[in-house]
Design a protein around this nucleic acid. Structure first.
Lengths: 337, 337
DNA sequence: TTGTATGCGTTATCAA
DNA sequence: TTGATAACGCATACAA
């Protein structure tokens, strides 16, 4: 019994059963218009009966499409993987859109520097209809190379180096502005920040947003840098407290770091929000269950994934798209500020 | 200039440049043995010069292989996505092994019940060399259908229904046993548990491990059920405290729930570990930074991913594999117990 | 509206 | 050791 799999039906098989030619079957399958309804039905019946499924290899050999989109994830995708549900959220958004468009998702993970070569080789074989680039670091050569190849590409997050790849990002600055204004409205006077790494767009843009918002209010900045981990949030908060014992609010560039900051505040005997107000960024699942629950800036992760897919599909279909799509963020009020 | 991409070189192009036949070029590319070294070098040079990359569609059309492995993720993959780094950990493990084997990873996400049909259709077109099934729920028909198709399949986690698909899992029971023994050694006498959902293998096996370990020590069980979320850990811990104020230890089936339990204990004024010892499961990243840091059972997530890939690759290569591979867990001592 | 014929780029069989 | 040549399964230009 083992491996007794009947030969897979081909167009030919279906054609014989339906009493038509291969070409006609192909037309029916691809939804071509000029086919008599009687013939169409006969073909459909034959397809059902045989359980016929087109051979993607044969199809793509002649059509030069593969109906698949590649998602490229560089190794040091710090945010991608450190962050609670960031990667999976994006992934599900992408998956949802691709499923609707009946495209496959090929995952290209770079686990070593040498992976770059392998990925380019794969992409160069033109087996994909488009590429989604996840969280690039600094001067990644990938976007440029792909664009030069003429492959449709979109990136997640604004590019640091100026490679002109269309991207989707969230409104970091807008979210931070809302957070700071909320703190100012509360009457907070000395508002510090724990920023993210300054070689990542999320780190840079959120810090810039903080500085701008404070400057607009005529206040002085007070900045410590973390690396988006809980631990770095704790130590940054301690430094902040040392430098400026009088601070009464802190905007933290990620919820994970905010968790760490809450701990440092607790250990220092400061009450949140009475003594110090804390606002995070991300609206990670953990933000609901910190003590106290975290006021934070929500970014639409799932939507980002969906847009990434939608845009690359448009590109693949030959449409033009905006060079940048900025999705709105939203301040979520809980108890920490 | 737009779209002015030179025609991709084919075997024919390379053959002409190297002054040999297509067949010979193919042999060189596929590492066939009987080729004169001079000829081989000429071909290699031509390949480099032209930047030739084989066309996967053409290749797979005749070879009937695609050098790709599918990872199927059912939608309600609770654990996959709720858990901090579980999914990404598995994914990286898989990615690492597939990269070493030069295989592609195709992600098949089921976002709706209707996805099942689409996934089967894709898999039925035989475009993959093997399938990895992630976290199946109850009586999923997928494994059976795939096995019937003769596609190499391995699953992540023991199957609840008895479909005989080979799987990789971690030693839940062994880990729990180590945890309970540790608590007993400490002189803890009333050891409760917060178990996971009883329709998931991880929930079932960890609870069974708890019962067995306690029974072996002649102790009584005390069980509350959670759903692997922080919140459920908090409320389960409260119920436990209500039912048995005298408890002095609790084994919690996930770190996330353990975080919740720590909070409930804190709110109830119990000191950890002095009054109540707490042991978690997973060794999630958060376990390092709870208060106090969490003693927990570490499961080798990355290794699980690697093994999943290794086993399916073996299957695809025609080798036989063990119907079950159980990876060791390890008790990590921190401060909560 | 339908059928015939051709080619997509490989691998593999068979001769030479 | 190397070279013709026949599939592989499909889409499509061209005829009918």
């Amino acid at each position: 019994m083992r491996d007794a799999h009947p030969a897979r039906p081909t167009l030919e098989t279906v054609a014989r059963l339906a009493g038509v030619s291969r070409a006609t079957v192909s037309r029916v399958i691809n939804g071509s218009v000029g086919v008599t309804s009687g013939v169409r039905e006969a073909v459909d019946r034959a397809v059902d009966q045989l359980g016929y499924v087109p051979n993607p290899a044969a199809r793509s050999l002649v059509s030069r499409r593969t109906d698949s989109i590649a998602l490229v994830v560089p190794e040091p995708a710090t945010r991608m993987f450190s962050d609670d549900a960031f990667f999976t959220g994006i992934l599900r958004g992408i998956g949802q859109e691709l499923e609707a468009a009946d495209k496959q998702l090929v995952l290209l993970l770079a686990s070593t520097p040498a992976s770059h070569h392998r990925i380019m080789r794969y992409l160069r074989s033109r087996t994909v209809d488009g590429v989604i680039l996840a969280s690039l670091h600094g001067a990644d050569p990938l976007p440029g190379e792909l664009a030069a190849m003429g492959v449709p590409v979109v990136a997640s997050g604004r590019q640091l180096a100026g490679s002109a790849v269309p991207y989707i990002d969230v409104d970091h600055a807008g979210g931070v502005k809302a957070a700071i204004e909320h703190l100012l409205t509360q009457g907070r006077t000395r508002i510090a920040t724990i920023a993210g790494p300054q070689d990542m767009v999320a780190g840079i843009d959120r810090l810039a947003g903080y500085r701008d918002a404070l400057a607009a209010a005529g206040r002085r900045s007070l900045v410590e840098i973390g690396d988006f981990t809980r631990e770095s949030g704790t130590s940054a908060m301690r430094r902040l407290l040392d430098d400026e014992p009088a601070l009464d609010a802190v905007f933290v560039a990620s919820d994970l770091m905010a968790e760490g900051a809450l701990r440092a505040l607790r250990q220092a005997g400061r009450r949140v929000p009475q003594d110090v107000a804390v606002v995070g960024f991300d609206d990670a699942t953990a933000a609901r269950s910190t003590e106290p629950p975290l006021t934070t800036v929500r970014q639409p992760i799932h939507e980002t994934g969906r847009m990434l897919a939608q845009q690359v599909l448009k590109l693949a279909a030959g449409e033009d798209i905006d060079p940048a799509l900025i999705l709105p963020t939203e301040l979520v009020l809980r108890e920490s500020a």
